[in-house]
Design a protein around this nucleic acid. Structure first.
Lengths: 189, 189
DNA sequence: TTAAAAATAGACCGACTTGTCTACTTCAAG
DNA sequence: CTTGAAGTAGACAAGTCGGTCTATTTTTAA
């Protein structure tokens, strides 16, 4: 693997576990076994490494979720599969996503609160992308675009709420509870 | 106001806006106009100031929400009022809670991911307290304790999801959308 | 009035921060 | 075999970090 990717992987792992401001550039270098100059050949600053890490996590997470959902028929089944997928994530059964420390994008926005900051914007874009993925499937089971938007929104809120509850309160069944609520919302449709 | 409280207020404001690890003790001291030794007379370390700030925010937030909800009849009306309350919060109409930068407890857990850390534990305790507040009201409109637990859980997830969506994506109507979902969940009961 | 308590300003400590710079090595392509 | 790119190790800079210490002033209470 190229040095650039090694740096991104190491940085993402450390940032995700401890937060971004808690991790120094020197620690990233030491754990990745890369020289400092090499880092500054590939990135112009720590912030630009942070951006790359967020971008990488976006790709990693989205591809994983999309792949999980597409293992089921589009619509109701795929949406239910989403909750099973995040349930696996909460319970550390998805090595790709590392151990569960909440949502990296939510955590990162806690450290970059300014909505105009590039890092915050990338986190927002990720959430919007996930939302669109949900909407793609709610359209399959809703009769109007407005209904699809509304249902996707409800499912999105349940999913985000479950992530928070799982991380903050350590509730490892949060995803299953959210799935229960969601299934009751969808079935009468 | 005593120096101790001045320090807590200033620290909370800065921690909430920028994250905890991004704020140094010296900045807290400068903005609060307090000498360094005074801080270390009242707190044995930065971490203990952080704990005090979290505890203060817990008190501040819980009392505010409880007071807003008790302005309405217990049960359905109070639960709906909760969504109106957080809607006001998102839109910066609650000076007590400062400008909206997401949930301080969620953000803080992003920086203290170890669930055994005292700071993380205090954040978890806050969320549990809020959940119990909701359950108090769902009991009024549910026929069994299990139903009350289930409904409180659903409303809690919607609320947490709305906080995340409002902060990360800047969706200022997230609370109203969550309220819509919630009202549709409650009315058929 | 006096004595104790609390707060002040600010020097100081060692460790760490991001980032630059130099000198040396590794390696691959022509 | 040579040339140039890429990587390494580590010193270095200027500043910040949490925290301690001293010396002085202000406040409070007996």
């Amino acid at each position: 693997m190229g040095r650039r990717q090694v740096l991104i992987d190491t940085a993402l792992r450390l940032f995700y576990e401890h937060g971004i401001h808690a991790i120094g550039i020197n620690q990233v270098l030491q754990e990745s076994g890369v020289a400092k100059q090499t880092l500054y050949n590939h990135f112009e600053s720590k912030d630009s490494l942070v951006e790359a890490a967020v971008e990488h996590r976006d790709k990693l997470f989205f591809q994983w979720l999309e792949s999980r959902m597409s293992s089921q028929p589009a619509g109701r089944e795929a949406l239910m599969e989403m909750f099973d997928a995040v349930h696996d994530w909460f319970n550390n059964r998805v090595p790709t996503l590392h151990r569960f420390y909440g949502c990296f994008f939510i955590n990162t926005c806690g450290e970059y609160s300014d909505p105009e900051h590039p890092v915050h914007k990338r986190c927002a874009a990720h959430k919007t992308r996930i939302f669109e993925l949900l909407k793609q499937h709610t359209r399959e089971i809703c009769s109007s675009e407005a209904d699809a938007e509304e249902l996707a929104n409800a499912l999105f809120l349940l999913k985000e709420g479950a992530i928070v509850k799982a991380h903050v309160e350590g509730d490892l069944d949060a995803a299953l509870k959210a799935k229960g609520v969601a299934s009751r919302m969808i079935s009468p449709h």
